[in-house]
Design a protein around this nucleic acid. Structure first.
Length: 413
DNA sequence: TTTCCACAGGAATAAAGGGCGA
DNA sequence: TCGCCCTTTATTCCTGTGGAAA
């Protein structure tokens, strides 16, 4: 019988945690100009002046959050040297919070004792804000509130309320500075003028990393995370090249390096090499799709299933009116009413956003009009395996039978 | 230059569901 | 238990879009 005892294996990693998202390095490489600008925006705090509101923008994985943690840690250390400054930092990530109400609840719960938390629903909005002002005023001094991924919030209410809380008389003692971090470059323009003028007092833009900068970032982490010679020579350049290709995203490049390291360790390899990186890349992409599809509603999955079956018949790209009959057929099969075309288009747009399908705009002018064509963006086998439960529920469509069967065969082996 | 097509997608609104305080 | 408040998912209605054809 196989033995499942655990033995410590530190042959490759020295400190694997250095590749994780929560790790903050001692210095940030490749972001000198941005740090300088950001530093200047935070300077009033240490001078004992009212903090500015700062808006950071740039695509995901370009160092916005890391720069914030790095500078705020430094700021807190330095502020401790001055008796007349009490500085508190509250950081929350707005991913999964899509209203000001939910953000306010999260802030209250972050500030409160775990035994005294409030529920996510049930209170009038004004009541939740009132809880928030009480908590902030109790902290006293200068408070920096960091809202990461602030573009996930659908309404601007909290972005308007927080900067004005003191002038509106909700706060007596606390001085608030708001730092909003956004991955969505158009978010700033979508804000109303009054929110923009208060939130975007100071703006710092983070451009994507280029391959050279990514190499610096990866090499810095390599030295902390891995033993000497644990990586083959081309591993860092390869991860950096993929990272630069994926919109200059250092987070993805680091995840790739971590996954490649884990695969090498699983193989009991002496060194992380090229093929570990390739395999890691496939695995990360696969995980991302599987996770995305698992979170979809039943109708979104049926719509994806409809498109998948059309793809298997070589009938893609397909416009929404071609997908609809197949989708209705699947709904019929499981005895549920199909959603309206409008809602179906919403789901198709969500699937495109997720990166499972691609949508291209077409225009045939006077006779044909304007429409979108949809096709699978991912490997058919992968989508079929992500949709397995839906396929079982709605019946195996003839066109995807071979793909579904190969999935079952694979599992048998 | 104007017209027309097909449908994308914005806005308003409804329905269902869940938590809270009284 | 009831009314209130919020969220999520959906529907209905309607305007906007842009390239080919007239």
């Amino acid at each position: 019988m196989t033995s499942f005892s655990f033995d410590r294996d530190n042959s490759l990693y020295k400190n694997r945690d250095a590749l994780l998202e929560e790790y903050t390095p001692n210095n940030l490489v490749g972001r000198d100009d941005e740090l300088e600008e950001y530093h200047a925006a935070l300077q009033p705090i240490i001078n004992g002046e009212a903090p500015s509101n700062i808006f950071l923008y740039g695509k995901s994985g370009v160092g916005k959050t890391a720069a914030t943690r790095f500078l705020l840690n430094q700021l807190q250390e330095d502020a401790a040297r001055y008796d007349d400054i009490t500085l508190s930092v509250v950081e929350i990530n707005c991913d999964g919070l899509n209203s000001s109400y939910q953000v306010a609840v999260r802030l209250v719960n972050t500030l409160r004792d775990p035994a005294d938390q409030i529920s996510n629903t049930g209170y009038p909005q004004a009541q939740v804000y009132s809880f928030l002002w009480d908590e902030l005023d109790e902290l006293n001094g200068t408070i920096i509130i960091v809202l990461d991924e602030v573009d996930h919030i659908n309404d601007n209410s909290i972005l308007y309320q927080i900067p004005r809380a003191r002038s509106n008389g909700y706060l007596e003692h606390a001085k608030i500075g708001l730092i909003g971090i956004s991955n969505d470059l158009s978010f700033r323009d979508s804000l109303s003028a009054k929110v923009r003028s208060s939130l975007c007092e100071k703006e710092v833009s983070f451009p994507p990393y280029d391959a050279t900068e990514l190499q610096k970032v990866l090499s810095q982490r390599e030295q902390v995370a891995f033993h000497e010679n644990a990586l083959a020579e081309d591993v860092i350049p390869l991860c950096a090249a993929y990272g630069a290709q994926d919109a200059g995203d250092a987070r993805q490049a680091l995840d790739l390096l971590l996954e490649a390291g884990d695969l090498a360790r699983k193989d009991a390899a002496e060194q992380v090499v090229d093929h570990h990186v390739q395999e890691a890349r496939r695995k990360l992409e696969r995980d991302r799709i599987m996770e995305g599809v698992a979170d979809l509603t039943q109708h979104a999955r049926l719509i994806l299933y409809a498109l998948t079956s059309l793809e298997a018949e070589d009938n893609s790209p397909a416009r929404s009116r071609d997908i609809r009959p197949r989708y209705e057929q699947l709904c019929n099969h499981i005895g549920t009413e199909a959603l309206t075309s409008r809602r179906m288009r919403d789901h198709l747009a969500d699937l495109a956003m997720l990166g499972v399908i691609s949508s291209t705009e077409k225009n045939e002018g006077m006779s044909g009009g304007k429409y979108r064509e949809h096709a699978l963006k991912q490997d058919l086998h992968l989508v079929v395996s992500a949709l397995e439960e839906t396929i079982e529920l709605a019946g195996v469509h003839e066109s995807i039978r071979p793909y579904y069967q190969s999935l079952l065969d694979e599992r048998e082996d």
